[in-house]
Design a binder for these strands. Sequence first.
DNA 1: CGGCATCCCACCCGATACTG
DNA 2: CAGTATCGGGTGGGATGCCG
Lengths: 113, 113
Amino acid sequence: MNDSVSGTRRRATKTGCAVEATMSVVGGLWKPVLVFHLLDGRVRFNALCRLTPNATPRMITLQLRELEADGVIRRIVYPEVPPRVEYELTPFGRTLEPVLISLRDWGEAFQSR
Amino acid sequence: MNDSVSGTRRRATKTGCAVEATMSVVGGLWKPVLVFHLLDGRVRFNALCRLTPNATPRMITLQLRELEADGVIRRIVYPEVPPRVEYELTPFGRTLEPVLISLRDWGEAFQSR
DNA sequence: CGGCATCCCACCCGATACTG
DNA sequence: CAGTATCGGGTGGGATGCCG
């Protein structure tokens, strides 16, 4: 990503970038929440909206699109009436599970400190 | 935070909030990186700037202030000339270590996929 | 050195209305 | 139901300059 600066301390720079890389995928308030709720399985768009009341449908759509572009989630369209769309984690997205668990665990400790 | 919606599914709502709570503390691209670099010990302001070349000093200052307000880091001012300021994790901030490790590990996997 | 104050622009995001 | 289109304000954050 950016390893041009001062060949020294390469190690620190690289690991810093790894954290940045993760945040560029799960950054923003809503992406981690969305992915977290998808850990349970396929979820409909409306359900995600209800599970994330502080985010507008518009935002949820945009975030989902980015997650899809990053290969984290998959979009499943059922050609029916009324339309139904579900989202699920890709195998790659599943590898985020431990990260999300960490985030949740720490958040719970933070809330009850 | 927000538990007004539908007494049912309280669990999902709460865990979702836990993730949100964490992101409200370490959200943003730079906070996790800063905290990560502080895992090694006390670091000077300038050093943090060099370790985070994509963030401006202004941003780093603001993020550090927020982390301080959340009790994650501590600011140590040495009354000398030239001035020296160092930052270090509080015991509470240290509890973020597993989270940061998760973020780094996943980021490395993501970069080399 | 380690900031803070100010200006200013870009973009983020909410609200609303509309479509397949 | 599951979005997209468009508009507009509010805010994040860069650049610059000054201070202790």
